Amino acid sequence: MKVDKKVKKAADEKELEILLSLIDTTSWIGWRDVTVLVLLYRTGIRIHTLTSLKEEHINFNEKMLVLSGDIMKNGKVLKLPLDDELLMLLERLMKQNHEVRKRYKEKNDYIFISKSGKPTLNNYSHNNAISKRINAYSKKYGLSISPHKIRRLYATNLVRKKVPLAIISNALGHSSYEVTRNYIEIDADEVVDTLRKYL
Results as ranks from 00 to 15, higher is better:
Lys6Arg: 15
Lys6Cys: 06
Val7Leu: 04
Lys9Thr: 09
Lys14Ala: 12
Trp31Met: 09
Val34His: 11
Thr35Met: 01
Thr35Pro: 01
Val36Met: 03
Ile45Val: 08
His48Asp: 12
Leu50Thr: 06
Leu50Gln: 11
Leu53His: 02
Lys54Glu: 07
Glu55Cys: 07
Glu55Gln: 10
Glu56Asp: 13
Glu56Tyr: 11
Leu65Asp: 14
Val66Asn: 09
Lys73Asn: 02
Gly75Ile: 00
Val77Met: 09
Asp84Glu: 08
Met88Gln: 03
Leu89Arg: 12
Leu90Asn: 05
Val100Arg: 04
Val100Cys: 09
Val100Asn: 11
Arg101Glu: 15
Lys105Leu: 08
Asn108Ser: 02
Tyr110Lys: 08
Ser114Ala: 11
Gly117Asn: 06
Thr120Ala: 07
Lys132Arg: 14
Lys132Gly: 06
Asn135Met: 08
Asn135Cys: 14
Tyr137Ser: 12
Lys140Arg: 14
Lys140Asn: 02
Lys140Thr: 08
Ile145Val: 00
Ile145Glu: 01
Pro147Trp: 09
Pro147Ala: 12
Pro147Leu: 10
Ile150Pro: 00
Ile150Thr: 05
Ile150His: 03
Lys162Tyr: 06
Lys162Gly: 10
Leu172Trp: 02
Gly173Lys: 10
Val179Gln: 14
Tyr183Ile: 04
Asp187Cys: 05
Asp187Pro: 00
Asp187Thr: 05
Asp189Ala: 12
Asp189Thr: 11
Glu190Asn: 02
Val191Asp: 09
Val192Tyr: 15
